[in-house]
Amino acid sequence: MERNQILAEVQEIFRDVLDNEEIELLDATTADDIEEWDSLTHIQLIVAIEKHFKIKFTSKEILSWQNIGQMIDCIASK
């Protein structure tokens, strides 16, 4: 799958889960940039992403992402 397409789909999931239509994701976006995105909603996001792409992350992967770019790379590699 194209990287940009993944980004767009992930953005849709973010808007859906965090209930905020104004979220714009970039590769460099971090949890500090989006107010609703904290350690708790992070889990909900991951569950939603896993369901959407039908993949499974490892714990280490989930904990080592520092921004959206790394997350997208990880999805792309699956």
Partner: peptide
């Protein structure tokens, strides 16, 4: 503790929904 205990547990239990949390 959130980073090193709660999060890893939460990730492990993530498929159990609210009960896991």
């Amino acid at each position: 503790l959130t980073d090193y205990v709660f999060m890893p547990l939460n990730i492990r239990f993530r498929d159990w929904g609210k009960f896991g949390m």
